[in-house]
Design a protein around this nucleic acid. Structure first.
Length: 277
DNA sequence: GCCCAGGGAATCG
DNA sequence: CGATTCCATGGG
């Protein structure tokens, strides 16, 4: 993997096993959108970025190599060997192969913990287009204006709000959950950073102290926001996967990379009808 | 109008 | 305990 400046852009050459589109469109993040040319725009932290992929080259527009190396390589988990992970998973469970071959370029993004927690609280009993809309309104109303859009409001900022203040989001019954989560994170009742290394069962219990956080939201927060690749979120789609492909269970659940397998399976079951096979 | 959505809390038996 | 019901909203 080679990172180099090209005028005002930064190119990553020989990107290898990575698909920008599949990674950003597999239901793990909600703040990236493609334009008609396939250029994705989004925000993480205070960084607005436009990104596109052409074969083995990833292009970051109007930025510098330090930002790409320090922010976006970790964000897309580009330093990890997913070939080795996929081999290990397929050895554990050969039935994973069709899903892994369907979108091998998916990676588990390392998103910010509070943003991940809040986003997946919003996701409950909801569909992805509307989740994106609610999160967009949350950022526009309470985030900081930066070039290209708005930041995700911190837990500290959100903790100062109340349910009525969240009315513009039109997020329904989830408003009270967002406020409770913000208060517990901001107040230190739940220390998100400590969950990166805490025993996984204890980490789940910690997250579920928050009203509105059950097993599914806790699992998503651990996987997409806290680097816990052994987490395995099961939603209505994954229940279909388990029933159709693994009626007798699967050893994938015990894998240290269970979350990667989950993402292959989730993406496949949601998109297989759109494809030709 | 009806069903469903990357669920979880409250309630019931 | 497990099973059921309710929750707000809007896309298809």
């Amino acid at each position: 993997m080679i990172i180099q400046q090209k005028g005002t852009d930064v190119h990553i050459l020989n990107i290898g096993r990575f698909s920008l589109a599949d990674t950003l469109d597999c239901g793990q993040c909600f703040r990236w959108d493609a334009d008609e040319n396939g250029v994705y725009s989004g925000i993480t932290g205070n960084y607005f970025m436009r990104i596109s992929q052409s074969g083995d080259t990833l292009i970051f527009y109007n930025t510098d190599t330090e930002t790409v190396k320090n922010i976006f390589v970790p964000y897309f988990d580009l330093d990890r060997d997913y070939d080795a992970i996929a081999e290990e998973l397929k050895k554990v469970e050969p039935k994973l192969i069709p899903a892994e071959e369907f979108a091998p370029g998916i990676r588990i993004m390392a998103q910010q913990p509070w943003e991940t927690l809040c986003s997946f609280i919003i996701s409950q009993n909801n569909n992805i287009p509307r989740i994106k809309g609610i999160i967009s309104r949350l950022c526009e109303n309470f985030g900081e204006k930066i070039e290209g859009g708005f930041t995700f409001p911190s837990a500290d900022v959100t903790a100062k709000l109340d349910v009525d203040a969240l009315a513009p989001l039109r997020c329904g019954f989830r408003a009270k959950y967002i406020i409770d989560a913000a208060k517990k994170v901001s107040g230190g009742v739940v220390d998100l950073e400590s969950l990166r290394t805490l025993d996984i069962a204890q980490a789940r219990t910690e997250l579920m102290k928050i009203c509105g956080v059950g097993p599914k939201v806790a699992e998503c927060t651990l996987l997409y926001g806290l680097g816990r690749l052994e987490a395995f979120p099961v939603d209505v789609w994954m229940k279909r996967v388990m029933a159709e492909y693994f009626p007798n269970g699967t050893p994938l659940l015990e894998s240290r990379y269970a979350g990667v397998a989950q993402q292959y399976l989730f993406h496949r079951i949601r998109n297989e009808k759109k494809s030709a096979d």
